[in-house]
Design a protein around this nucleic acid. Structure first.
Lengths: 96, 96
DNA sequence: TGAATATATGAGCAATTGTTCATATATTAT
DNA sequence: ATAATATATGAACAATTGCTCATATATTCA
């Protein structure tokens, strides 16, 4: 398949955002619906700082979207590509 | 979604194997069909050593499969999950 | 056998990554 | 106003990554 170097880099960056167990667990949580940073941190036993750092990367790659409400920020998956990549990857792992 | 830590790690490892532009370009080439290490190296302007190192990781994650013929080794994508992940990722990037 | 070819592998190094800790910003409550 | 809460951010550090270079293994050819 023909692929410009730019697209190759963008694809690699997309998959990079899914290449860490903490981020995978964040996304797995968000498949269940919108959550605040603290709720994610509590749910995963991570510090809010670590979660916030990871969410920034995910936001930057348009994998999650933020909605601010008062002093909380609620995150959701940005579009259905994300959960489809997730479940397709899970398929591969489970048939490995 | 509920996800064991093991599955999270395995998923992260799977996406890690797709998280580098050189590997993405190797996979893009292999979507066109079976190729030798040298052909891949020539096609991408990489050294055979660098390609071989990358192929080892891809082989380990069952993304590519090797077939030895004489002194050459021909690589193909291991199963259709790979090209489906690839094209799904490309979709996301192109709608970004 | 020895030389040439194709691939694989280990060591080493620069660059990147994910975390912690401290601090900053923003919002709400008193 | 001050304090408390929720999140974001920068610096710094250990751990990981992808390459090069040298070398090893395997196969073919003369």
């Amino acid at each position: 398949m023909k692929l410009t170097e730019l697209k190759a880099i963008q694809l690699a960056e997309l998959f990079s955002s899914l290449s860490d167990a903490s981020r995978i667990r964040i996304i797995a949580l968000l498949i269940g619906g919108e959550m605040s940073v603290r709720a994610i941190a509590d749910g995963l036993g991570m510090t809010e700082s670590a979660v916030s750092h990871q969410l920034r990367g995910l936001r930057h790659m348009h994998l999650v979207r933020a909605r601010k409400s008062g002093r909380q920020v609620f995150y959701t998956l940005d579009d259905d590509h994300v959960s489809r990549l997730f479940t397709l990857g899970l398929d591969h792992v489970q048939h490995g």
